[in-house]
Design a binder for these strands. Structure first.
Lengths: 207, 207
DNA sequence: TCATGGAATCGACACTACGTCGAAAAAATC
DNA sequence: GATTTTTTCGACGTAGTGTCGATTCCATGA
């Protein structure tokens, strides 16, 4: 997007920017067809009409491309989660909006995201990206849990940060496994609300 | 364990069985030190005192070794889950026993299991193994959910199979991410019970 | 006791993918 | 149009995988 001196790139802005863009776009195109692990640097280079060794002028590795792609995604990843994470109480609508945005992202970029997650152990920059995302979510959700508990809106239970971590794990695993992430939103809404607010041990007048 | 003509193996039982065993044991030893992805066939062969090409006499690939290792594990994986899965209602103790057994397995064999999960897409036998495990759990848990709902013991909610799938996803993701799986058991017990029994919308006399 | 055939071993080879280097071509700059 | 910077590429070296055919080992039974 901007004219930053990308990781593998020397300096200054110029013609080669088109090539860099072409590599990124090739990566996207290929990711629409097959998983990240099946994409080789040859293909990326070929897609941008350069030789394989020229690829290395633009990026240090395949994963550097992934990092760049992810960079353009980090804004989207928290999209619409503000009202939910900054709110309080079982605000079903806000949670649904947050999860819907996330589901759309998984629908459109699932291969990229799950490829990145799979490569994260063994690739520090990706591990850092993943950890950052998770921390951002867990921090805010844990704070929300604490607020709700203090206000008597949520039952006691696991440490807020642990519980928030479990919610994050569940989201990621569920979306990664789902063929159609959007079809999962309603159920995830129900389940997350239960995880946070459903204390089955309280007076138990079910049915 | 038994004297089956393993996948990559030609025929008959004999001396080379010791070698086969040695390869398996080497794999275990190495897995205790580093992730599956970092283990090479050279190392496995060296650990069993044979040349790299001799390795292929015993196994077709590194993943075939993993499959063999997993084979000896499948019994353990459902260990102690009977009382929980065949029972009914929020039987916290039974669930805890089931999860404890699973946590121990993840503690001891975490590298093997997560390595197998990571390699599953792209390796049919492993994908099948994973799918089989998941299906076994989901089937029984979904049946349990249906029973409980029919008996008025659990609130309505997501399709039983979907909900069961989410529970399975959560377990796997949580244990895979946890440094100390056993420390997670209590919280997972709480959370799973909430997922299944906690309908936060019912008369809500929290606190 | 020794031939024979299957079990087991290995070296050499071919292949794929990765990443580096230095030299050359193309563009931009003055 | 000379110089400097950007961009390109072919050649090379590496690591890991998997295959093949030749060879050695060894138990068996004639």
């Amino acid at each position: 997007m901007s004219t930053l001196p990308g990781p593998g790139r020397r300096r200054g802005p110029s013609k080669g920017d088109r090539r860099e863009r072409a590599i990124l776009e090739t990566a996207c195109t290929l990711l629409a067809r097959k998983p990240l692990a099946d994409i080789t640097i040859d293909e990326l280079a070929a897609g941008a009409d350069i030789s394989r060794s020229s690829f290395y002028f633009y990026f240090d590795s395949k994963l550097a491309v992934v990092v760049a792609l992810l960079h353009g995604l980090t804004g989207e990843l928290g999209r619409d989660s503000g009202p939910w994470l900054d709110g309080s109480g079982p605000d079903e609508a806000a949670l649904r909006r947050s999860l819907t945005a996330l589901a759309v992202l998984w629908r459109d970029q699932g291969r990229l995201i799950s490829g990145a997650l799979a490569a994260a152990p063994g690739c520090p920059p990706l591990a850092e990206w993943r950890a950052g995302l998770r921390a951002a979510h867990v921090d805010r959700l844990a704070a929300r849990i604490s607020r709700d508990r203090a206000a008597g809106l949520a039952p006691d239970g696991p440490e807020p940060r642990v519980l928030a971590g479990l919610v994050d794990d569940l989201r990621t695993a569920a979306f990664a496994a789902a063929a159609d992430p959007e079809a999962l939103v309603d159920d995830l809404v129900t389940v997350e609300l239960r995880m946070l607010y459903g204390d089955f041990r309280i007076p138990h007048p079910i049915r």
